[in-house]
């Protein structure tokens, strides 16, 4: 129980830190984001005083309100879910844009990451179990994929499978001409088809890392005393591998999974850019390109919250599969 309280406490502090970073960045940076946004918004349509107020609360007004007051306004605005209005997608609000793009990203990045983790851990288990086998000797090759930048691999795959042998579409999230979004088979099929190449990119470039980590932990675990016990007990090798070796070796991989989520998100923003995928990463880049500071800050906040949430989830999962954590209270 104390473990859980500690964890929740930590994530609260981290959440506060993320909100504060989000508050500070626009105020510390050179330039006047509010004015830039106001003039851009003015070109698109009339700006109401409420809109101006909420943007000022987010990005910092040069009307000389003391910082603590500004901080209070900012938090109050966030509490009501007001993240301002987007310039790029005027008159849509930032929350709307996020709501529209986030499912795409979670579907693509989330699924691809989980698949890559499972595949990497599975292969790593086998490689560590049969040290010196061909699979084990393949590991340096697979980790080379890790040092290939996501977006470059994506470019090469696009070049080969999109242009040279046109098996997959070049960009987008689904076929916008022939398919209507909704819960119908055609649309889902199209989504899968369009998502295959981006997902493949993410899997190929990240599975190697999981595989290496798991392999190394397996090797360390194999020399533990309880492995010898399991062997002396005459258990079947498959059972020893799963319940004794892999069950222990996977623990660091899981905590490593939490840590590297941030990197995964980063890599996928760039991947989305290559494939013009209609996810949150592309929206962030559009926002950056169009000086749409409100949308930018909003997306940054959401990405951070998502990573924090995913970390918390992994921590909870960890406490379920490692009995020692539960008892350390």
């Amino acid at each position: 129980m104390r473990y859980l309280i500690r964890k929740f406490g930590f994530y609260l502090v981290a959440l506060w830190a993320a909100l504060t970073v989000n508050f500070c960045i626009p105020r510390l940076m050179p330039g006047d984001p509010v004015e830039i946004m106001m003039s851009k918004l003015g070109q698109k349509g009339p700006v109401t005083p409420e809109t101006r107020q909420s943007i000022e609360a987010l990005l910092g007004a040069d009307s000389s309100r003391p910082l603590p007051r500004q901080y209070g306004d900012y938090l109050a605005g966030l509490a009501t879910g007001d993240l301002g209005v987007s310039v790029t997608f005027f008159p849509a609000s930032v929350i709307d844009i996020i709501g529209r793009t986030l499912p795409w990203t979670i579907g693509l990045i989330g699924l691809a990451t989980v698949i890559s983790f499972l595949a990497g851990v599975g292969l790593g288990t086998l490689a560590g179990w049969r040290r010196g086998s061909w699979l084990d000797n393949l590991i340096p090759v697979t980790t080379m994929f890790q040092s290939v930048p996501y977006f470059w691999l994506a470019l090469i795959l696009l070049f080969l499978l999109g242009s040279v042998w046109p098996l997959f579409p070049l960009n987008g999230g689904y076929d916008v001409y022939t398919v209507t979004p909704g819960w119908n088979g055609e649309f889902l099929g199209s989504v899968l088809y369009y998502g295959a190449l981006p997902a493949l990119t993410i899997i190929v470039s990240s599975a190697g890392g999981w595989m290496l980590g798991m392999r190394n932990m397996m090797v360390s675990t194999l020399s533990e005393d309880y492995m010898l016990t399991a062997e002396a007990k005459g258990l079947r090798p498959g059972r020893i591998m799963r319940r004794y070796a892999a069950r222990n070796a996977v623990l660091p991989s899981i905590s490593g999974f939490a840590i590297s989520l941030g990197f995964v998100v980063a890599g996928s923003i760039v991947t989305e850019a290559v494939f013009s995928y209609p996810g949150i990463g592309s929206a962030l880049l559009q926002a950056v390109g169009g000086n749409d500071y409100a949308l930018m800050q909003g997306i940054f906040l959401i990405i951070t919250l998502a990573v924090l949430g995913a970390n918390l989830l992994v921590d909870l999962l960890y406490s379920v599969i490692d009995p020692r954590i539960r008892a350390r209270s």
Partner: peptide
Amino acid sequence: SLFTNIVLVIPGLPVVIVISAYV
């Protein structure tokens, strides 16, 4: 350790992108 862990869970590249956008 608290500071390290907080920096660790806040994703790096989005921060870099946002900062780059202002400068």
